[in-house]
Design a protein around this nucleic acid. Structure first.
Lengths: 342, 342
DNA sequence: CTGAAAGCGCTTACAG
DNA sequence: CTGAAAGCGCTTACAG
């Protein structure tokens, strides 16, 4: 009977915790404690372990750590799109706070499909991650239950909803839509259209806010809506603008549910010799790249993407660490940016 | 002395392999084989294990699998930006082939920083992933060595470079730049400018190709270049166009190293009443969203982002599986798309 | 403040 | 084709 040989390097050739401990002359659990920042270790040991780790260029094996601690050190973020730069901005911001805290971010793109989102959530929850960030509230009942049953801390972003145990960071899409209607009416537009693509739930909420505000003023005209589930794009904006003007030449104000549609409309207006905003005022949504520079410069609603990512990440960190959270729903607001197009 | 109790559920409450094996009436290793698709298992056992796994809704613990097999099931992709939709397109395409094959994709954004990229590569290689996809060849010597020393299969994308043991999928940035110069000269432009931002190595290669082609025709004028390391954007395109025209009102052809700059220039031209292409022809690069729809429609170079992602992923899969690769360098080409602006 | 033992949930050789 | 044993590299209680 030979004593089992303790390996000091992994199959990959990288040093193990045991190698660090041996070099530092401590037990591996003490080395583990130092490397994890647990404070109940003597200062001399701390020094020696840190030196040994540095010398060996030690990096912990994430798989072993995850298996032993049953904590993954991972945060899964599920968004509906990467083509829509709104979500790229949110992601960047999430990265900037979670990365320095040692979390690996897993990005799941549902492509605006509820079923794809459910699959992603099921996939991630099998791991399971330390935390979860999901977009909005429109999902399958199964996905909802999976999240709840998992017990994994979860923050919903971009929309607001008050419900037991639900944490969210965003703004009121409906009120943003109202603000657009108010602006258009205030500048004298009487025939206001809502043009939207993709038709995800946030888009519909903006539309509903817009609609409601017009209704209250007695200016709502259902015939002045163009909705299509096709993906939002500049090219589609050109098409929809053309369609709308053909059908209703009397339109004098248009709310496009996303800036790319509005920018397309601006191009098409120019091609057709239609004056913006004199003949028809145009408002976009999100204040995406180019909105401030196009001709005419686009009036739009600036949405707080970076703040959403940052605040949601910090909220999630508190939840992961079982710290008290100031408020489970955080309204970050929006800002109507009036430029030249309306 | 009591026999050790085998747990059949994890701390998370999810079933373990042992639970599946028990339910199926086989050993856990046989269950493991079935679930991994190893074929040397009797058909009856396969059926029973699959049924048991389905019944328990079993999903393997990735950490345990990674630790035991020392394979992570992970592919790390390091790109310089998510704001530049070029890389979003590549990522989407990588996801679409690697996801169905069971790989988790880790996205590292270097923000065009060599040091940040080195940190990311060091971080990922500590794991280490089953494969690595990195952008281009411009990196620190340490990063280069880390990759080589790791032995992790690695594919370089977007640029081409023939070197021992190097695998890459992309196109010749320099030749694409030449093609733009040829086009501009062919349409009669005599004073051709190169305007670029960000100044990453691919941008510079395009510039060099453009420059060389002009030189050969005796039309190169160094004063007609504006280079700035600032991030590329539509707004910056407006500024640079204004600067250029102020300094050199005789310019009659401009190659913008990225479409967003060119789109900005188009807006600024309109504001200043400058006719495009009659007074000055404008060519962009990448054929990004909006290029086909702006006014005038943008002449640009379409780059094969989706193909790069797809081909690179398949190449990487072959390398991971130790299958022969047809060619270590794959040139996917580019396409000059002539529209209205030049 | 420090450590020996056990175990996280899989897969890898090695037998048969 | 199937399985018992050992081990992947950490961390979790539990002692002291």
């Amino acid at each position: 009977m030979t004593a089992p040989t303790l390996r000091k390097t992994r199959s990959t050739g990288r040093p193990t915790l045991d190698a660090v401990a041996e070099l530092a002359g401590v037990s591996s659990i003490t080395a583990s404690r130092v490397l994890r920042g647990v404070d109940s270790v003597g200062p001399e040991y701390v020094r020696r372990v840190k030196a040994a780790a540095a010398e060996l260029n030690y990096v912990a094996n994430p798989a072993a750590r995850a298996l032993a601690s049953s904590r993954s050190g991972t945060v899964a973020v599920v968004i509906p799109s990467l083509s829509n730069s709104v979500f790229v901005d949110v992601l960047e911001s999430i990265h900037s706070v979670l990365r320095p805290r040692g979390y690996e971010i897993l990005i799941g793109n549902s492509h605006y499909s509820r079923n794809a989102e459910e699959d992603l959530i099921r996939h991630y929850l099998a791991a399971p991650p330390s935390g979860l960030i999901v977009t909005g509230f429109d999902r399958t009942e199964s996905a909802r239950r999976l999240i709840e049953a998992s017990g994994v801390p979860c923050v919903h972003i971009m929309e607001l909803e008050k419900a037991e145990g639900v944490h969210c960071v965003g703004f009121s899409q409906a009120r943003a839509g109202e603000a657009v209607a108010d602006h258009l009416v205030a500048r004298g537009c009487r025939h206001n259209a809502f043009v939207a693509a993709q038709l995800d739930s946030r888009m519909m909420q903006r539309g509903e806010g817009f609609r409601e505000a017009l209704r209250r003023k007695g200016l709502y005209d259902a015939d002045l809506e163009i909705l299509t589930p096709a993906p939002s794009s500049i090219g589609l904006g050109c098409d929809l603008f053309r369609q709308l003007l053909q059908r209703r030449p009397d339109v004098d104000g248009i709310f496009f549910g996303n800036d790319d549609l509005a920018q397309g409309a601006l191009f098409e207006a120019r091609r057709q010799g239609i004056q913006v905003p004199d003949q028809v005022a145009i408002v976009g949504f999100n204040d995406l790249a180019g909105a401030a520079d196009c001709v005419p410069r686009l009036t739009t609603v600036r949405t707080p993407r970076a703040e959403v990512g940052r605040v949601a990440s910090n909220l999630l960190l508190s939840m992961i660490d079982n710290k008290p959270v100031p408020s489970p729903v955080v309204d970050l607001g929006y800002e109507l940016v009036v430029r030249e197009s309306a």
